[in-house]
Design a protein around this nucleic acid. Structure first.
Lengths: 375, 375
DNA sequence: ACCGATAATGAAAACGATCGTCACAACGCG
DNA sequence: CGCGTTGTGACGATCGTTTTCATTATCGGT
């Protein structure tokens, strides 16, 4: 059943250095396709004979400038001329070159965004909303994934600044001094999301993660709990939530019986493993705070397998209010943050700045505990 | 006890369309936070006094071209000169303007990608892998979300082509004639993913969705099932999988007792609802194929609530092999497709083309049924 | 008829980098 | 010692659009 129809190794003319690309067509194959790193670029990526603004201008019998005006400030062109120009554009299939336009106008009509990952409902919600709003305003979003190793963020910022985005969205509020200087020198509006800071780089839309942890602790304490546990992903903001939680517990003179850190990103499986590891501590009633609904879900599934009653023996609170949290038995309590709101606010801030409205804007978005049967 | 400290709902000026943004200021109440829709652009987004290549050249005592060579083809510059130039770059904080470079070299070192959504593990996996590989090769990825309404894809393609990407990744293989012409005229390498087609636009990495459905049907039939049901999201490829399934069932002379289409994107909740709606048909043993693991998960959760035994009364097969599929009781059978492989292959194809290696490349990636306790 | 205001259009000069080409030096070889 | 070879750097042209500034038509009021 593994028929590979065509396999052809082609070298690039006489130059053997570039051999080795594989062309494979298969019916149903498990194929380790690998292409070597390209050493050379084709001379031009863009077709040489592409139609440009002067071609349209000639076809429509006007100056290039008029074509530009039809596209960018149509109200400043007479209706008849505009029609003639549009007809020429359609006929020739002209697609304006925004690279050239960007160089000339010094506005790229593009914003760059950096998030750790999109494989996470919280960030994907932020991004979906941010992107929708920016695009509606005529801006394209260039999305970059930093992962959870912060080492490369600076390099990423540098690469993105090279494209001269009109604005920048960054996750978190911790920046290296070098990155901070880079951003300041560029003069580009920056909005940081998903966290708060005393000294944000520029604008900010987020919430206080330590406060989230403390609020969950207060909620548990108010319900009479006296033994606590925390599972957190090894990511700076997840750790802050955990810290806020354990600090509040200890301030109240109560005990933390388990405090587990798992590698980011958090998964259901790691939640299960973490719960299994703390089984011995579950001989008495315990309240567990997880830095993500993924972990909480895993913990609840695993608790069920071991006959640990939720919420009687183990109370669980997650974070994120993913759809998952409602579909396990019992549905679990979690912290809701409106990612969509963060994304939309971030877009609003940037757009306001583009419109010339200055000022450092900062906003805290609310979070709230969504109470369900697990607590 | 879940106290949200400060919450202020403010509508945004006179324009009620944008009402609802939440402004919460903590300490300093002095925030004139208000972001109406921008009507005007600031004159320049880029700082006027930015350092450019000629500044670096002067500082290093060389010609601009030499600076360019240090950055792009360092092997063609003497070591001492390179050091002097790099020192000047660091001292001045020079960030090369890739817009200018792109205009001149006619290569943007950027590729554009369009996927329906990233709030879906399959696409986010594809994108994460695609992005990682492209960035390693020096290309930035501009990601755009098309949603499931295909109406705007053409407009989106046009907008992206204006940025002159060096390559394009598109989801699915169905294009409108206009979009197809646009792409062909642009001469830009295109790779379509996640589907197969007789006449792809250019390159392609995908699999046959009808074949997936047929394979699942054959699997069920081989296990003695004679009554079948399907849940599918209203998305062209999900519908194709369903069609492949029901066609194969009917070809075998067997019956489809339920065939439910839910709005895209598929969610756990819609899976639960769909199962509830087909409860009357579950008086006899039935085999259910869901177009997504989300739906399958919901179906299994709901079946448990109604005391329907899985797999004895209801056999379930999902699609996607999400982490979820292993963490419900019982874990369910699903179809695995390696999204990461698709993303990496797509990147390889584009990079090979950039390196001047021609030819229409197409590859089918394998899928396989992952058998678990639900069937 | 004249004037100034306003609208519609053009011409030429940026925008900041890269490319092709050429000049100039250092170097090896007969 | 002279000649070609090779490796480096400089110069000017160019990429396709927008900006700035200038020009021409239009028009109502006096």
């Amino acid at each position: 059943m593994h028929t590979v129809r065509t396999v052809a190794y082609r070298s690039r003319g006489a130059d053997e250095r570039y051999a080795g690309a594989i062309r494979i067509t298969t019916e149903d194959a498990s194929l380790p396709i690998q292409a070597p790193m390209p050493r050379v670029q084709a001379r031009f990526a863009t077709k040489p004979g592409a139609v440009k603004i002067t071609d349209v201008a000639i076809a429509a019998g006007v100056a290039p400038m008029t074509v530009s005006r039809v596209l960018n400030t149509p109200e400043r062109v007479s209706a008849e001329t505009a029609i003639r120009v549009r007809e020429a554009i359609a006929r020739l299939g002209y697609v304006p070159n925004m690279i050239a336009g960007g160089l000339s106008s010094r506005r790229s009509r593009m914003v760059a965004a950096i998030v750790p990952t999109i494989a996470h409902p919280m960030f994907s919600e932020v991004i979906q909303n941010f992107t929708a709003k920016m695009r509606a305003a005529g801006y394209q979003v260039m999305l970059s994934l930093s992962g959870y190793g912060e080492a490369n963020e600076e390099e990423l910022v540098r690469a993105l600044l090279g494209r001269r985005p009109d604005g920048l969205l960054l996750t978190g509020a911790e920046r290296t001094p070098a990155a901070r200087r880079l951003l300041a020198d560029s003069g580009i509006p920056v909005v940081e999301i998903w966290d708060v800071a005393d000294q944000p780089t520029d604008m900010l839309v987020g919430f206080d993660h330590a406060d989230v942890g403390a609020t969950v602790a207060a909620y548990f304490i108010a319900r009479g709990h006296d033994r606590f546990a925390a599972f957190a992903a090894n990511d700076s903001r997840a750790l802050t939530r955990r810290q806020g939680f354990t600090d509040a517990v200890r301030r109240a003179g109560l005990t933390v019986v388990a405090d587990t850190v798992i590698p980011a990103p958090s998964t259901i499986t790691s939640g299960r493993q973490a719960l299994r590891a703390m089984l011995p501590a579950l001989d008495r009633r315990t309240a567990l705070f997880c830095s993500s609904d993924m972990l909480a879900f895993g913990a609840i599934v695993e608790a069920a397998l071991h006959g640990i009653a939720v919420p009687d023996r183990l109370a669980v609170c997650g974070f994120g209010n993913f759809e998952l949290s409602q579909t396990v038995e019992p549905p679990f309590t979690t912290v809701n943050v409106e990612g969509g709101l963060i994304g939309r606010n971030a877009a609003d801030f940037l757009l306001a700045r583009f419109a010339g409205q200055g000022g450092a804007q900062q906003v805290r978005v609310p979070f709230k505990i969504v109470e369900r049967a697990s607590t």
